Simulated scan of single mutants.
Amino acid sequence: MQTLVKRTLYLFLWITGLTALLALSGLVYLWFFSQGTQPHETKDLPHLGWLVSAVIAEIVAVVLLLAKKGLKYLPETQTDKNSGDTIRFMQNFISSGTSATIVSNRVSWLASNSELIEILKDKAKAGIRIEIITPHALPDEIRDALAGVSFIVTKETNPPEARFTLINGDRSGAERLAIARGVHPEHEITIFDNNSGPQISTSIK
């Protein structure tokens, strides 16, 4: 859905740009190639300056509107083709935060990722709050490897399919929330921040 919104905004931007280009092309043709009543006499276009200024102002206004008011309120999205891309994202995403809360209905992605386990372990040793929330208890080998990490078992019978990862939950205004859904090669991750989804980050906290 977010990708569709972005594409729609870019489509409007392209339409505006093409309209401005056509208008400028017409003005250039009238100014340089259209002849007046006498040979070698160009038609007088007293309002040409105003027309050119209006076209330029339109382009600038649309760009500023999209850049400053629109796009910053849209969450980031990415689509992973394979599990390796998702694991790399999780490593980078969690590494960028000062705390992390992971909500997942399965932990196969964690059990097979020793690098991510080391990242979580190092953050926990540094006194950073790390929470992993699952519907079922994790295997003992994972719990033992992640000493210092808080494990919460919800015992839900119908847990959500999406995986939620919240970082910087203890820093108001700096929260970032990643929601993963779907399967590879169409595994979509949507990242919200304080601009694009403050109410979502707050509800997860």
Results as ranks from 00 to 15, higher is better:
D140T: 11
N194V: 07
I167D: 00
M1S: 08
S114M: 11
T8W: 12
F32S: 02
G97N: 06
L120G: 01
E161V: 14
L45V: 02
T134A: 12
A23Y: 10
V149Y: 06
T134G: 05
I119P: 02
R106M: 14
L64V: 13
Y29V: 08
F33L: 09
L71W: 10
V149T: 11
V62I: 10
V149H: 08
A54G: 04
R106Q: 15
T16V: 11
D122K: 15
I119L: 15
A61N: 01
T98F: 08
F151E: 02
F151W: 07
T3G: 03
V153A: 01
A137T: 10
A124L: 06
G197N: 02
V28P: 00
H187M: 06
A145R: 15
G127R: 09
I167V: 11
N194F: 13
H136F: 15
L51V: 13
S201W: 05
T134R: 11
T134L: 14
I179Q: 02
T165V: 15
G36N: 05
V107Y: 15
R181L: 11
Q2F: 14
F192D: 00
S196Q: 01
S150F: 12
A54L: 14
I204M: 10
G84N: 13
F32Y: 09
A137V: 11
R181Q: 09
Q91V: 13
L18G: 00
S104R: 12
I152A: 05
L22I: 15
A162S: 10
T8S: 06
L64I: 14
K123Q: 10
L110K: 09
S104N: 06
L177I: 02
P160A: 04
S34E: 03
P46W: 07
L110T: 04
S201L: 13
L71P: 00
N92G: 02
Y29G: 00
V60R: 06
A178P: 00
A54R: 09
E161M: 13
G84I: 13
A57Y: 07
F89W: 07
D193I: 04
L71I: 09
Q199Y: 06
K123T: 06
T8G: 02
K72H: 07
E161P: 01
T165I: 15
L22W: 11
L9Y: 12
I94M: 14
Q199H: 04
N105D: 09
D85Q: 15
I102N: 05
L9E: 01
P135M: 10
M1T: 08
S96R: 11
G148Q: 05
A126R: 12
E175H: 02
A180Q: 11
F32R: 09
S108P: 01
S25D: 00
L27Q: 04
I167H: 03
T165L: 05
G70I: 13
S96G: 03
A180M: 11
E161Q: 11
D140H: 10
A162I: 11
L120D: 01
E156T: 06
Q199I: 03
I191Y: 03
P198V: 07
A54P: 01
A57H: 03
T134D: 02
E41V: 14
P185L: 04
L71M: 09
V153Q: 03
